Amino acid sequence: MHYPLNTPLGRMGVQTLEESPDRCVASIPVAGLRNPLTSAPTVAPLAMLVDHIGGLVNHYRRADDEWTVSSELAIELTPHALDLITATPEVPVVATARPFGPKGTGSLGLCELAHGGRLVGTATVRSFHIHAPGHLVAWPVDSTGGTPPATLEDRMSVQVAEAGGRSAVLRQLPDPVINNSIGIVHGGVSAAALELVASAALSDGSGDGSGDGMRTASLRVNYLRQFRGGAESRYEARALRIGRRSGVADAQAIGDDGQVALVARLTAYR
């Protein structure tokens, strides 16, 4: 399934290849996409793919009067994931998701990520089943042609506010195109942005002053409350530790109201 460019999935180039209650498959292109804070190749778009496909397999377990919202997202990548992806950027990353365990509080979807037939990671998405809200926004039906914006910054409607040192900040601009069906920033977009700021916070100020070669190994995100783009909406990250071989950073999404909406921890290795 191809999505219109004026939807978050279409903007990010996601395609759903297969969907059923037992198995969902989707892909995302990563060719030429770079972290706007560091200009380095990035795995951040994988968070968008995982949130979509893991959430979709959980969504199939809802009752007729229920909806699903993400509560947790976790990604674990192999040490060579970024190298494989950047070596053949024209090949999309494909995610396969299956339900794991019974439906319940925090229903769990289990995902495998592959690139060119080689596994590059695993991931999980937990979803709450809630009563279907009465304010669902219908997906737009126009703007199906063309291609997504060239840069990741434009695809996600973010803007660099602070870079360098042991912290990083991205602004989340208000843009209905990156909102989900309940009118808030799509969970995959916000998770990807948290990866961008957290990995950027680890890119400078290591023991030798360079931070070169730090690769994201794991990203864990908790969704605390609704997050909307706005004049003061932003993603912030700070490095907790940068060592010779590994680094850890915390990140959060803060809304216009000053409330923390999402939190994340990223671990990276050289």
Rank of each mutant, 00 (worst) to 15 (best):
90 E>I: 03
63 A>H: 07
92 P>T: 07
119 L>C: 08
103 K>S: 14
89 P>C: 13
120 V>H: 05
69 V>D: 08
64 D>W: 05
76 E>H: 07
112 E>Y: 03
62 R>P: 10
76 E>C: 02
104 G>N: 02
100 F>A: 10
86 T>K: 10
63 A>Q: 09
66 E>H: 06
112 E>C: 10
105 T>N: 12
86 T>F: 11
57 V>K: 02
116 G>T: 14
59 H>A: 10
74 A>E: 03
101 G>L: 06
79 P>Q: 07
61 R>P: 00
97 A>Q: 03
123 A>I: 06
109 G>N: 05
128 F>V: 03
124 T>S: 15
122 T>Y: 11
81 A>Q: 01
74 A>M: 02
124 T>A: 14
122 T>I: 15
124 T>W: 01
73 L>R: 03
66 E>K: 09
73 L>G: 04
87 A>Y: 09
101 G>S: 04
83 D>W: 05
135 H>V: 12
81 A>S: 04
108 L>F: 02
127 S>E: 10
115 H>M: 11
64 D>F: 11
95 A>G: 15
97 A>P: 03
79 P>D: 07
62 R>H: 00
104 G>S: 12
80 H>C: 00
60 Y>W: 12
88 T>G: 07
74 A>T: 00
109 G>W: 00
100 F>R: 08
94 V>P: 09
130 I>M: 12
84 L>V: 00
135 H>Y: 11
111 C>G: 04
121 G>P: 06
135 H>T: 12
120 V>I: 15
68 T>A: 09
66 E>M: 11
129 H>M: 09
56 L>M: 10
102 P>A: 15
75 I>G: 04
89 P>T: 13
92 P>D: 09
125 V>K: 03
111 C>K: 02
79 P>W: 04
99 P>S: 07
